Structure formats: structure tokens, C-alpha cells
Amino acid sequence: MELSKGGDTVFSESTDLWRDFHFSNFNLPFPLLHPSLLVVPYIDFEGSYDELGARFLDRGEQELAEFLILPSESYELTQKKQKLFELPYFRAHLREKTPAQIWQDMFTLDLDLEGKGNRDWTTYLQELYKIDYRDLVYKLYILKMREHYFPVNTDKFAFYKDTGVAIIDLKNDDESYKDELFFILEKDIIYKIKFRYNVHNIMGEVVREKILQSIRYQESSEDSTNAIYAQYKQLEYEERIDQKGMVYLYAAWSHVPKKKEFLKEMIRFLERGKGNQVYLRSLYDYAYKLYGTNFSLDKDNLKESSEERLKRLIKKESDEEYEAIGREKLNIDDTKFENREQKIDFLLQKAKDNNENLDEKDNVLRSH
């Protein structure tokens, strides 16, 4: 399968419209304030915890492309069910191949035998007889590796030496969209991205080409969260609350998806911007699925389970009680008391008269 190089449109775009970010375990490009593209968070709610991605929309919010980071898997060379490969004669031949060469051959080696052509059957069979059995067994080995690692709906596949990216073209029933898998092998781990794009819109091809130009493995690290967030803080305030700021925050969060507080603050900060609902929808849904609340400060947007609503109301009531105690303390004439302990006892008596929790109030008052 040949990699589409795209047209002039792909390469004539200003580089200022895109920026590479360390996102999860990859270096990936994102558009920033692009005149034709919106990028929004994409999270697979049916998948595992780390399946994050992004959707690329036109200004009418029609989908042009999307990617989703899939779970990684181990790259193993053994075929335990095939005893043939364990025979010393063939095993020695397999061991001559490096793991990197085997990986590349999975996407490039032609497994078909040479056709008969115009030769007579005797000549053709004589040619087949000359084929080294070890080469035949190696082709069988590659076939079994493909059966193990390639999806059943694989159509075409290719490998690009300049980037180390392997691509599988997947069959689907939607003629408007093309589905692909991007693979990167790093230290015996296969990292995967599922990519889909609209074949009838040039901007879908633009997104695809931008990703294939930039994609590379980069180990996820909380240090990257700190670095990206520091860059985010350097943006102008208006940039921090629009799409540009969203991309920075989303990329930073991709390294710490289990940090509840980061997700909450990201949502609440983006709510300050105008027209940000398109970016917030997936974050709202994801937060509600995991934590029972979408963390919104907007009463019209707030969605929470009955349990989370009860927790919030209890905390609100508790906070209000503490504030009331503080106000009450300020309104009392200290000259009426001989010492601080006498004042505290007076306040505790008032709390008792109101049937409040004396132990809790005692701790609060004596800590001030």
C-alpha cells in the first residue's frame, strides 16, 4: 500500500497553525486557532482508562478525522502453538533475524510463491524445488505473526523506514470514511493509534498527512504534564480559555488521566471561555462516568449522581456553618469576657442550644 503524499494544500499551510505536543506516549500535531479546523477531546468511554484521542471538525462541527490511542501490547517472537518453528534446523534460521527485521517483514514480505507464468509445469516445479525450505518456513512464520497481530478486517498494510511507522488499512462498510491503524515498535512494546478520516474532504487528508509527518514514540511522563502546564501559564489569559488553552491542558492531562483534581480544574477553567461547549462535552461525559459529577460550576450544565449531589450539599452546609461561626465570633464584644477560654465556652453553649455538634465546633473554635 503506497502512502498518499497529499497535494500542495497539505504542505502550503503555515506552520504557525500547528504545533507538536507530547500527548500520552506520542509526539503528535494539533492545530492551534486554525481557520478551517476545530480540535476537541475524544475519549473512548467503552475502552480502558487511557484511551484518549482527538476529533478534528470543520467550523460547522462536521467530523473530518479522529484518532484514538489504543492500549499497547507486548511484541513476542515465539509461536508456542507451532512446533515446526522449534525444530533446530528452522529455529537457527529464525534466530538469524533481528526482532526489528521480523517486525518490518510482517508489513513488507511477499508471501506468495512465484507464479508459473509461461513456463511448462516441469520447469516450474523444478524452480519450486530449488526454494530453500528455511525460506518457506520463515514465510509461514511471518504469516502466523500477521494472524496474531493483525486485525481480522485487515485490508492492506505498509511500513515506512524513514519514520518507522507501520500502517494497516482496515475494511469498513462506510464509504465516506477510511479506518487505519498506526503502529510504532519501541523496546518490544507495540504502541498503536486508530485513525479515521473523511475521504471526501481534503482537510481529512491534511490531518492524516500532518500526523504521519510528526508522529513518533515519546514515553509518557508526569514531567511532561508540568512542562506543558508551565507553557500554558505563559499564554495570554484569552488564549488560556479558548481552543489554544484547551489543547495545552488536554495534552498535559493525557499524562496524568487519573488525577481527578486536574480534570476538575481543566473543566472549570475552560468554562470561563465563550463557546467552549464543543470542547467540554467529552470532558463532562468522562468526568461524570468516572466520578459521578461533571464538575461544572454552571447550574444549567451541572450533572451529578444523587450520591455526589448529597456530598456536595453536605460540604456546602458545613462550609456555611463554619463561615457563620466566624462571623459570630467577629460580632461578639470581647470586653464581656475575662479571657479567651470564657469566650469559647460561651460560643459552645450557643452551639449546644442550637443542637449542633459540640466536639466539631470545639475543634474549630480552639484552632482559631
Results as ranks from 00 to 15, higher is better:
residue 58 D to L: 03
residue 67 F to C: 02
residue 52 L to A: 11
residue 29 P to Q: 11
residue 36 S to W: 00
residue 61 E to L: 15
residue 54 A to H: 07
residue 68 L to K: 14
residue 53 G to D: 12
residue 58 D to W: 04
residue 50 D to Q: 14
residue 30 F to H: 09
residue 46 E to S: 11
residue 60 G to T: 13
residue 71 P to C: 02
residue 28 L to P: 10
residue 64 L to H: 05
residue 66 E to M: 04
residue 55 R to A: 11
residue 41 P to V: 02
residue 71 P to K: 01
residue 33 L to N: 14
residue 46 E to H: 03
residue 36 S to G: 04
residue 51 E to K: 11
residue 41 P to A: 04
residue 55 R to D: 00
residue 39 V to H: 09
residue 25 N to L: 05
residue 28 L to N: 10
residue 54 A to N: 05
residue 59 R to F: 14
residue 63 E to W: 08
residue 30 F to K: 00
residue 35 P to M: 08
residue 46 E to R: 03
residue 31 P to E: 14
residue 38 L to T: 07
residue 31 P to T: 02
residue 56 F to P: 01
residue 26 F to M: 09
residue 34 H to V: 03
residue 53 G to M: 10
residue 30 F to M: 08
residue 41 P to T: 03
residue 66 E to P: 05
residue 38 L to K: 14
residue 26 F to Y: 10
residue 71 P to N: 07
residue 42 Y to D: 09
residue 26 F to Q: 04
residue 46 E to P: 10
residue 40 V to C: 08
residue 51 E to Y: 00
residue 65 A to L: 10
residue 46 E to L: 01
residue 70 L to S: 08
residue 40 V to E: 05
residue 29 P to W: 08
residue 66 E to Q: 03
residue 56 F to D: 01
residue 62 Q to C: 13
residue 38 L to F: 12
residue 63 E to D: 05
residue 55 R to P: 03
residue 54 A to P: 01
residue 37 L to A: 04
residue 54 A to K: 04
residue 51 E to V: 12
residue 53 G to S: 08
residue 58 D to Y: 07
residue 64 L to A: 10
residue 39 V to A: 12
residue 67 F to Y: 13
residue 29 P to T: 01
residue 27 N to V: 06
residue 46 E to C: 01
residue 50 D to I: 02
residue 45 F to C: 12
residue 26 F to C: 06
residue 33 L to A: 14
residue 39 V to S: 14
residue 41 P to N: 08
residue 35 P to G: 06
residue 61 E to I: 14
residue 61 E to Y: 14
residue 38 L to H: 13
residue 37 L to G: 05
residue 41 P to Q: 03
residue 52 L to D: 00
residue 56 F to A: 05
residue 32 L to W: 02
residue 27 N to R: 09
residue 71 P to W: 01
residue 64 L to T: 05
residue 32 L to S: 08
residue 33 L to P: 00
residue 60 G to H: 15
residue 67 F to Q: 06
residue 45 F to V: 12
residue 41 P to W: 07
residue 63 E to P: 01
residue 47 G to F: 07
residue 55 R to W: 07
residue 43 I to A: 12
residue 71 P to L: 09
residue 58 D to N: 12
residue 31 P to I: 06
residue 49 Y to L: 13
residue 71 P to V: 08
residue 54 A to S: 09
residue 57 L to R: 00
residue 49 Y to A: 14
residue 47 G to V: 04
residue 69 I to C: 12
residue 50 D to M: 15
residue 39 V to N: 03
residue 47 G to K: 01
residue 40 V to D: 05
residue 66 E to A: 00
residue 67 F to I: 02
residue 45 F to D: 15
residue 56 F to G: 00
residue 41 P to C: 04
residue 31 P to W: 14
residue 44 D to S: 15
residue 53 G to R: 06
residue 45 F to G: 12
residue 48 S to T: 13
residue 41 P to G: 07
residue 55 R to Y: 12
residue 62 Q to K: 15
residue 45 F to P: 00
